[in-house]
């Protein structure tokens, strides 16, 4: 069952962030949601994931296995990089495999480091790797490459594209270059006055 939003409206006080939003997201493909800051991209993602109830409207098809990179990293600061990923994947995720995947996103040598000791960009890559390695039917990516320098961003974007081929991905970004790189359907949200 594809992920489908019907007539979603979400307000915060007097401000209407989403108004009558409807869309059926393509299965096995990337959908990019773009728009200026404050136009409701992250709110839409939260509503689609089911972690924020809409004021009106319905979301169907989100009762499957979900994975996500949230607006914030949402990592356990006192756990190591490896433990943060294992928290989601469980013990079945082999150490060697994880270390080799960490190297793919430039986190070689960081496996045993507590997350609190990492830079912002490293944390972001840890959160992204956790989401990519988890088992999922729909993957939500909320600005997954923010805080990365250009070279690292390119490497990580290529890795992400490779890992998500043929999968249902909803990517939120304000960067047109990112949107074009991932292709797929593009939804441009407008900021409500």
């Amino acid at each position: 069952m594809p992920l489908k939003a019907e007539n979603i409206t979400k307000c915060f006080g007097e401000t209407t962030v989403l108004e009558d939003f409807s869309h059926e997201f393509a299965d096995g493909a990337v959908t990019v949601i773009m728009g200026a800051s404050g136009c409701g991209k992250s709110t839409l993602l939260a509503v689609l994931m089911g972690i924020m109830p809409p004021d009106s409207g319905t979301v169907t098809g989100n009762d499957t296995r979900l994975s996500a990179v949230f607006q914030e990293d949402r990592l356990c600061e006192n756990l190591t990089v490896l433990s943060n990923i294992r928290l989601v994947l469980g013990k079945k995720a082999g150490r060697e495999m994880l270390i080799s995947e960490l190297a793919e996103v430039g986190l070689e040598g960081c496996a045993e480091k507590p997350v609190r000791e990492l830079s912002g960009g490293m944390k972001r890559r840890t959160a992204l790797l956790r989401a990519l390695l988890a088992e999922y039917d729909v993957l939500f990516l909320d600005e997954p490459f923010k805080g990365l320098d250009e070279d690292t961003k390119r490497t990580v974007m290529e890795y992400t594209k490779r890992m998500t081929e043929g999968k249902t991905v909803i990517l939120v970004t304000h960067d047109r270059e990112e949107a074009e790189f991932f292709g797929g359907e593009l939804i441009e949200l407008q900021k409500n006055a």
Binding site: I51, L66, S67, A68, F70, E72, R74, V88
Partner: peptide
Amino acid sequence: KLTVMADIFR
């Protein structure tokens, strides 16, 4: 927010 993360990843 970590609890929400854990909910999403089950």
